[in-house]
Simulated assay, not measured.
Amino acid sequence: MQYKIRTLVIESSDLIRMGLHSFFSRHPSINLVATTDCMHDLLFLVKQHQLDVILMDLQSIEDHGMENFSRLHRQSPESKVLILSSNEEQHLPSRMLPPGAAGIISKYSSCQLLLNAVTAIHAGKNWLNRGALPVEQLQPIPVKPAVLSDHYPAPDCFKLSRTESRVASLACKGLSAKEIGRQLSVTEKSVRNQLSSIYKKVGVRKQVQLCIKAPLHNYFQ
């Protein structure tokens, strides 16, 4: 009997979620456990089901924060997460994906390509753009420098302080302000103030944006 990959979808768009449900629920190699648009539902579902693959809308991470994404990874470390991007082309190196994510794919991809991605990450590979690579063969993909807001300085105009670098590094590992404070023996309020300063310098507004952008410019060096 063919093994079915236990899959869950978290997607903010009703139409895309319905389309994925229609496709996966009829495919012989996929066991679609559930679909949802709510991170809290997802955290509940991972406790109830042993999931192989989670397809997650990138917007869900931005809306609910890296802290909840990291919590998901801690609750279900064996589940492989495939990020669904709204961009037609997504050029992010695997080292810049949120901790626990095994790959990223455009929502504009064909159903067959999406199925290939799910199968690949379930088999222990990473999926980048349109193909799979074994983890040991992954190479950084060229990334166009992000466009900074006019309100913030260019990345080569400043350097983070040693303390800011430590805070930013821990934040990019998915730790909350409270967890960072505990590790650095400072108050949560102090960490939040540091993060506000870091966001302003880097030119971002959210923790997940810092995770994506900071490694590009070696802000931790």
Score class of each variant (00 low, 15 high):
Gln48Ser: 07
Arg71His: 07
Leu51Asn: 04
Ile83Phe: 10
Glu88Leu: 05
Pro77His: 06
Asp63Asn: 13
Leu82Trp: 13
Asp63Val: 09
Met96Pro: 00
Leu84Ile: 11
Ile61Leu: 04
Gln75Pro: 05
Ser79Glu: 10
Met56Pro: 00
Pro77Asn: 07
Ser85Gln: 11
Pro93Lys: 04
Ile83Val: 13
Asn68Ala: 11
Arg74Gln: 14
Glu62Val: 09
Ser94Gln: 02
Glu67Ala: 11
Pro93Tyr: 04
Ile83Arg: 04
Leu97Gln: 01
Leu97Asp: 01
Leu58Ala: 15
Phe69Lys: 00
Asn68His: 11
Gly65Pro: 03
Asn68Gly: 01
Met56Lys: 08
His73Val: 06
Ser79Phe: 05
Leu92Ala: 01
Ser79Ile: 10
Val53Met: 11
Leu97Lys: 00
Gln48Cys: 05
Pro93Cys: 03
Arg95Ser: 14
Gln48Trp: 00
Met96Phe: 07
Ile54Asn: 02
Pro98Tyr: 01
Glu67Ser: 10
Leu92Ser: 00
Asn87Thr: 11
Ser85Trp: 11
Phe69Val: 02
Leu55Gly: 12
Leu82Met: 12
Pro93His: 05
Glu89Val: 11
Pro93Arg: 03
Glu78Thr: 11
Asp57Cys: 12
Glu88Arg: 13
Lys80Thr: 06
Gln50Phe: 07
His91Cys: 06
Gln50Val: 13
Glu67Leu: 05
Pro98Leu: 00
Val46Ile: 15
His49Asp: 06
Glu62Tyr: 09
His73Met: 08
Pro99Gly: 00
His49Ser: 09
Val81Ile: 15
Ser85Asp: 10
Met56Trp: 07
Ile54Trp: 07
Glu89His: 15
Ser60Ile: 15
Val53Asn: 08
His73Asp: 07
Ser79Tyr: 05
Val46Arg: 01
Met96Arg: 06
Glu67Lys: 06
Lys47Asn: 15
Lys47Ala: 12
Phe69His: 12
Val46Thr: 14
Ser86Phe: 12
Ser85Gly: 10
Met96Trp: 03
Asp57Ser: 15
Asn87Arg: 15
Gln48Lys: 11
Asn68Val: 03
His64Thr: 07
Asp57Lys: 09
Lys80Ser: 10
Ser85Cys: 06
Val53Gln: 08
Leu58Arg: 12
His91Tyr: 10
Glu62Lys: 13
Ser76Leu: 09
His73Thr: 15
Ser70Ile: 00
Ile61Thr: 04
Asp52His: 13
Lys80Val: 05
Ser76Pro: 07
Asp52Tyr: 04
His49Cys: 09
Leu97Ala: 03
Ser60Ala: 15
Ile54Lys: 06
Ser79Met: 08
Val53Phe: 12
His49Val: 10
Ile61Val: 15
Ser79Asp: 06
Gln59Asn: 12
Met66Asp: 04
Leu58Asp: 10
Ser86Pro: 05
Ser85Lys: 10
Arg95Gln: 15
Leu92Met: 01
Pro77Arg: 05
Glu78Met: 08
Glu67Cys: 05
Leu92Cys: 02
Leu72His: 03
Ile61Arg: 01
Pro98Trp: 00
Asp52Ala: 09
Val81Ser: 01
Pro93Gln: 06
Val53Ala: 07
Leu55His: 14
Glu67Thr: 09
Ser76Tyr: 05
Glu89Arg: 14
His64Tyr: 14
Glu88Val: 05
Leu58Gly: 05
His73Cys: 07
